[in-house]
Design a protein around this nucleic acid. Structure first.
Lengths: 130, 130
DNA sequence: ATAAGTGTATTAATAATGTTAGTACACTTC
DNA sequence: GAAGTGTACTAACATTATTAATACACTTAT
């Protein structure tokens, strides 16, 4: 279902959180879908159940999943999720802009690099940004 | 000369590196300018000399400063520095774009957020991007 | 009721990283 | 020679991420 990258400098639980967020936002996972149990996914990824639990706790905190004791974890149904995620992305962009402007990079240069990124990413495997 | 932010999650040496990179790229510091000695800056920031040394070693590795034993550290003179820094920034932007496209955020939305960021940042204290 | 599967909580141990502390050595300048 | 400089090294400490092992409470199915 998902996989982790040990070369990635980010902690495992963070990668797991990110993977699920994207799957939920892309509607690969639908509201009330059951996601793997803590123990199952831990075995699947060959990592410790505690690490998965931490990821799930974070996903619940951010409203992406809800928990039913004794039953499992399920995908939440909130139309606000994508909106919230966009805000996070835009905040990151703002931070990069701040850094960029500070050394004299212009708004136009940044916009241009966005266009090139889009072409590089979407031009590749067809699928693209829906 | 510079300062560190203990609320920042990034390590101190990384903050120091970033501060010097910006000062050099903005030409606040000029080629062959002497920067504070490892011990001096350590006292100044009330942190350990080893931490400064690590920052300076990284700055040298990236070509921002050069070292003369027994004399000190000095700002490098390379017109390539800003170009290299831009590439780093653009790479970050590309990564964010990848994440954004993945959940259906469009190129236009990103460009729009750049414009808003620019206004929020530059519109504020007049100074702006150089 | 029992067993199996689930989330949750707790404590301890381990590993990696960032930081501090202290010391030593080589070089440059005065 | 003294003072200031970069460099190297070892040890210790703090924080964080991860693992390990265990226990408990709940749900479902038998």
């Amino acid at each position: 279902m998902i996989c982790v990258d040990y070369r990635d400098t980010r902690p495992i639980y963070e990668q797991v959180v990110e993977k699920f967020k994207v799957m939920i936002l892309r509607e690969v996972l639908h509201p009330d879908d059951k996601i793997p149990s803590v123990r199952n996914l831990a075995v699947d990824l060959s990592i410790n159940p505690n690490t998965i639990q931490r990821a799930y706790a974070e996903l619940e905190r951010q409203g992406y999943i809800y928990t039913v004791k004794g039953k499992g974890n399920f995908v939440s149904d909130s139309g606000q999720l994508l909106l919230k995620y966009k805000e996070e992305i835009f905040e990151e962009i703002k931070n990069i802009c701040r850094t960029a402007f500070e050394v004299g990079i212009t708004q136009e240069e940044i916009v241009q690099s966005i266009k090139e990124s889009a072409q590089a990413i979407n031009g590749k495997s067809g699928a693209g940004m829906r």
